[in-house]
Every structure is written in C-alpha cells, then in structure tokens.
Design a binder for these strands. Sequence first.
DNA 1: GTCTATACTGAGATAGAC
DNA 2: GTCTATCTCAGTATAGAC
Lengths: 198, 198
Amino acid sequence: MRKPFRVAQFESREEAIIEATNRLLATRGYELMSMDDIAAEVGIAKGSLYKHFESKEALAGAVMVRLLRRTRLALEAQPAHLDARAHLEALLRWTLRERLAGGVPHLPSASQSLRDSLLANHDYMDELMTLSESIGTLIQKAKADGGLRADLRDEFVLYTFYARSCDPTLDFLKAAGSMSDDEIVDQMVSACFRGLAG
Amino acid sequence: MRKPFRVAQFESREEAIIEATNRLLATRGYELMSMDDIAAEVGIAKGSLYKHFESKEALAGAVMVRLLRRTRLALEAQPAHLDARAHLEALLRWTLRERLAGGVPHLPSASQSLRDSLLANHDYMDELMTLSESIGTLIQKAKADGGLRADLRDEFVLYTFYARSCDPTLDFLKAAGSMSDDEIVDQMVSACFRGLAG
DNA sequence: GTCTATACTGAGATAGAC
DNA sequence: GTCTATCTCAGTATAGAC
C-alpha cells in the first residue's frame, strides 16, 4: 500500500530540511548557521522547523547520521577484491572528494553542547560505532598483512583516519587555488600513508 | 627611568587579561567563551575589559599574537646544529607538548568574523608571515638535502604542518586516556613524517 | 580606570490563529 | 502543520557615577 500523499509530502519536506541544513553546515559551520537561515533556505517558517526537529542540535544530529550512513554505504560499495589497506585509502579518497565537492558538514570541534547532544543521540552513536568497527577491522587486517605499520596503536590509526577526513589542509589548499582537486587529494592521501619524509 | 607604578600595574593587568583569555580559549574555545567569563576569571568588571581591548575579537587576536611569538622564539631557540628536517620535527614536538600541557588556544576554524578580524590584524599577520617564512625556508632546505619528499608542494607541506599542530587526534587520544603523553607525541610525529603505511 | 547598571542585538524556542 | 508574532536569554558593548 502506498503512503498517503500527506505523509509523503511531510517526509519529503523533512528531507528538504536536512538537505538545506547539510548545505549550510558545509558552508558556514554549526555556530554561524541560524534557524532563520535554515528556514529561509528551505522556504518555510522558522516555527515549522520545530514540528520536525525539536532543536538545532537534533537537526545537526540528523545531518550527521545521514553523513555517517552515506560513508558506510560508500565503504560497503567498494570492490571486494581490494586488500584492507586499499579499502582504507579508497575511503579516505572518497571522503576528501566529497568535501571538495562541497557537500560535507563541517563540525570540527563545534560547541560543547552539540558534542554532548551527539553523544546522547542513539542513531548517531549507532552509526558511529558501526562505522568505527568496520574501519577498526580493516586496520587490524591491514596491520596483519603488512599494509599498515604495526607499531602504531589501533586507536591512534582510527582517530588519525577520522582527523584526516576533516583535515583543514584541504580547505586551505582549495582556498589558495593553486592546486587542482585531484592533486590535493593525491598529496593528502599520499602524505597520510607514506608521510612527508624523504 | 623606571616605569611609573601606575603604568606597570596597568600593563600587568593587561597581561593577566591575556593570560586568562588564553586559558579560556584553550579549554572552551572562542564561541563558548564570553566576556563575562573572562572578567570573572581575571577578577575585574566586564566593562573594564573594554578599556584594554576594544572587542572580543581584538582580545583573541592578542592571544594569538602571543602564541605565534612564543612559537617563533621556540624555533629560534633550537640548537643550531640540527638539520632542517630535525628543526621541523622538533617544532612539531614542541607544539604538541604545549597543547598537551593545556596552554594553547583552540581556534580550529572558529567564526568567520573572527577570521576576518585576524586577517585585518597587522600584528597577527606580521607574526604569521614571519613564522611561515621561517618554516618555508626550512621546508626548502629539507627538500634539498633529502629530508623531505620533493614531490610534495611546498605549500602543501606548510599547511599540513600547521594542520598537524592543531590536529584533533591529540585531543581524542588525550581524552581516551589509554596512551601516555610521550607516546601520543611520538606516534603523531612519526605518522606525520613516516606515514601510516607498513 | 574601574565599577555598577543597562541598552541593544541576535538567536533559539514557543504561542495561538488558521 | 504552517504561519506570524512574540518570548526569553545570553552576550557584546556602552553610559555614567566615583
């Protein structure tokens, strides 16, 4: 049975809200994005936002959940024949390309209250755990077959991986404008895995 | 001729304000630090802050100038016999240790208005240029003598270096608590120069 | 110059009509 | 459910007494 028209419309509006918030988070970041901005971007009244999401933090959480889900799907869609290290490299490439394309929300450290609300957000934490476990497994495999250095702690590698995904170097280079997108991605991935040393 | 007592007192209060702001920036970050917080930390009235600094942004700028100056002095104080690459490594170590000690302000991307005000702040830009030139020279030297990869662009290396100085990986690992400070610094420096790959 | 008190603004959230 | 209008509150900045 098809969804009633009314319900479908409600859901599509909700999707539009998330999409608009995603755009604003990607350009301005959390603090500089106001609920007024979102409402204007979607083309609805500010008060209506609160019928869909109970707070600005909840809205940002929904956007982050979507990002984590897309990341997980991107990982699952990778060719099965790759070895663990190649999976990690490809995932990092995917993330950096997404950022260069401009679609990734930008919550580097953001506010404390936002972090707290994310920690309390079950959907978010579930997605984060799932993704972290997948990546953690890849890290262990890659270490076992010599693709990654065994002397680095697993958690160090995991956090480093996340940090490279939101590395401001990409934004600086993009803003400077003297390197092509491909070159930026290549150098960042290369520097991450092979280092800066000669 | 000695400074008049009154002037000395004024300057020491100003130093106290900068010091307090530094602490607050290091713990809460720019957005979450209010002028009320600063006044309370120093133990003076909020209005009095504006006799010393014309705005919150100017105050943050003064703190950043002090940080850049200290960084430059740390670089200049390094033993002269080091080669270029060792200088870079030592500087990164110094920065990470400072952050672990808790004294470094934390303006990852911060607000747009703050960035604009920093760009318009001559003292800040001067210090930043001076430091960037010193580091740039080291990068070129290190490339020339084989200490750094020659296939990476100078600007890429410079930005990467700055990015590693405020890498959130350090905060994650510190918060997780499972690695000692020394181990955190060692792995971060090692990963920066030698990479993650096995 | 420092204090207390306050004006002004922006932004998150809510109320009530339709 | 959506709209308009409004509340509330925090935070920057300023005024005026001392």
